[in-house]
Computed example of a mutant assay.
Amino acid sequence: MLDDSLLDDPAALQRADHEHALLRLAGAGARVRNALRLAEAAGIAQLRPDGRPRTVLVAGHGAALTAGQALAALTATSSQIDTLAPHDVAPVQHGRLATPAFTAGLVWQLPGWAGPLDLVVLATADGGEQGLVSLAQQAYARGCAIAVIAPAGSLLADAALQVRALPLPYVAAAPYEAEEESGPAEADLPAEEVGALWAFLTPLLALTEELGVTQLPEGSLAGAADLLDELAVRCRPDAAAYTNPAKDLAARLSGTVPLLWADGPLSAVAAERFAAMLAERAGRPALPGVLPQVLTAHRGMLVAKLGAAADPDDFFRDRVEEPDPLLLQVVLLRRAAAEEDEYTDPGYAISRARRLADAHGIRTSDLTTPEADPLRALAELIALGDFAAVYLALATPAG
């Protein structure tokens, strides 16, 4: 269970944060600005596209695929946005001392219909995936336009030159001294860096804006960077839990299995990201879904004993032999107009979700953004979820 006292102890949080996750989340705004500046230096502004691509395929794994899903949610044109996940894995040759990352052997396959009308974007924080190099070669043979987001000097970045791809920068996280491993882990499954999403999404949006695929409000990326800075201040470790929305959310999630219900495509991306961060950082399960269909998909859990049937306040329960049960909690991720207040009906699906949870005695929490700009709205929902997942991990004693 979460130790509430740790949430209000900045020194203890810092000692527990071996990977400097909070610092890296706080630097998301600066990372967006750096990525945008480097993307412009790479020549995006000089592109002269001959119409929009028919389809934009974003290939990668982890946060790269999340960036592709975010791009799809932010796109309102005739172009189709698809993500291309690995479909297989092959063994990787290595020496006696080195253990290659599992991701190095991932395999991707270009869809049979992909061709000269399509754009393939290959994105990775490592750049050593031979499968992405092979995919770049497939795309080149099909006549696809190609862009690559990868660290400079990596295997994929070098391959991009051979297939005439547009090289876009991957802005790595700032290095910190005395970084330690967070604990025992599979040697070939390293944790993904917490801020990688913005290093992928920023150049991806800069490129698609230039191609006319996305049409965000003017200055949207810069505005999102400013908002990420503001959220970093609100969610800083020395902000008390009652004024820190991420700490408050982490405390409310403790001891529960969250059902992350989103009210639309943008909040659905944030829900998927939140579930991934809770699993990766806090080791907690969470189930995302989109309203209204999630009401029927999750109905069985609402009426089962995992809901409110097991009463944690039962006076006669043996606290030693029967530990506190895990209970469900519904978290509603949604966008709200700036002029709405707490008494405004957010829509039938949200109202029905609240009534359903109340009827089964299940706690409901809100993760709401008032931002009208879709990118700023996405940034707020994702940032609050990221910080909350990290605080939940840091304030939960191991074992």
Results as ranks from 00 to 15, higher is better:
S5H: 09
D8W: 05
D9Q: 12
P10Q: 01
A16D: 05
L22R: 01
L25T: 09
A28I: 15
G29H: 03
N34I: 10
R37Q: 13
E40R: 09
D50L: 00
G51K: 14
T55S: 13
T55P: 15
A63G: 12
L65M: 06
L65S: 08
L65Q: 09
T75M: 04
T77Y: 03
I81E: 13
P86V: 02
H94Y: 04
A98D: 13
P111Y: 09
W113K: 07
G115L: 04
V121D: 08
V133A: 00
Q138M: 04
R142W: 02
R142Q: 11
A147I: 03
I149K: 00
P151Q: 03
L156R: 02
D158Y: 04
A160F: 13
P167W: 14
V171I: 15
E177D: 11
A178E: 11
E181G: 13
S182F: 09
G183F: 14
E192F: 01
W198N: 01
A199H: 07
L201M: 12
E210Q: 11
V213F: 08
L216V: 09
A222N: 12
D229M: 09
R234T: 11
D238A: 04
N244D: 03
D248K: 09
A250F: 10
L253S: 03
G255L: 15
A262D: 10
D263F: 02
S267V: 12
E272M: 08
G283T: 10
R284Y: 05
A286F: 03
A286C: 07
L291D: 14
M301F: 03
K305T: 13
P312T: 12
E321H: 13
E321F: 07
L326M: 10
V330E: 09
T344V: 09
Y348F: 15
A349K: 00
A353W: 03
L356R: 15
A359E: 15
D373Q: 03
A379S: 10
I382T: 13
A395W: 14
G399L: 02
